[in-house]
């Protein structure tokens, strides 16, 4: 009987994890696959190139997780270098990184 229960549990796990796993539909961006995440950061960088608004860029990056915007951008540059992104794209990311490294959130500008 214990063997039957174990087989049942195994079947249940296979069904629930492999055959018909939970499907997520309303996920936050922090679990985006690395390439999508990199593309999102690249878009923010391209927009920053036009808008030159650090506050907006930082807010857009903040949806990707609790890391600082500079860390998010830096890891994207690493990804871009690993995956041979065109030089101009690496350059806009670099510009965004420079901006995020010097960015001070509003209210924290004091000494």
């Amino acid at each position: 009987m214990a063997a039957a229960a174990v087989i049942g549990i195994a079947l249940g796990l296979i069904y629930g994890w492999v055959i018909d796993p939970i499907e997520y539909t309303d996920v936050p961006p922090n679990i985006l696959r690395e390439d999508y995440r990199a593309d999102y950061v690249l878009m923010v960088a391209e927009a920053y190139h036009e808008e030159l608004d650090s506050e907006v860029a930082a807010r857009r990056l903040a949806v990707l997780g609790s890391e600082s915007p500079a860390v998010i951008t830096a890891s994207t540059i690493e990804y871009a270098n690993r995956n041979a992104f065109p030089q101009d794209e690496v350059q806009v990311l670099q510009n965004l990184l420079t901006a995020m490294q010097t960015y001070q959130p509003q209210g924290n500008t004091g000494p």
């Binding site: 009987m1 214990a2 039957a4 229960a5 174990v6 087989i7 049942g8 549990i9 195994a10 079947l11 249940g12 796990l13 296979i14 069904y15 629930g16 994890w17 796993p21 939970i22 997520y24 996920v27 679990i31 985006l32 696959r33 690395e34 999508y36």
Partner: peptide, 25 residues
């Protein structure tokens, strides 16, 4: 016993420890 095991397996795989998404689109 098999049915109970199946139920326990489903409860575990769907509710207690569901598939975790790390590579969402």
């Amino acid at each position: 016993a098999l049915l109970a095991g199946l139920g326990l397996g489903l409860v575990y795989s769907w509710f207690l420890s569901p598939v975790t998404y790390v590579d969402a689109t």
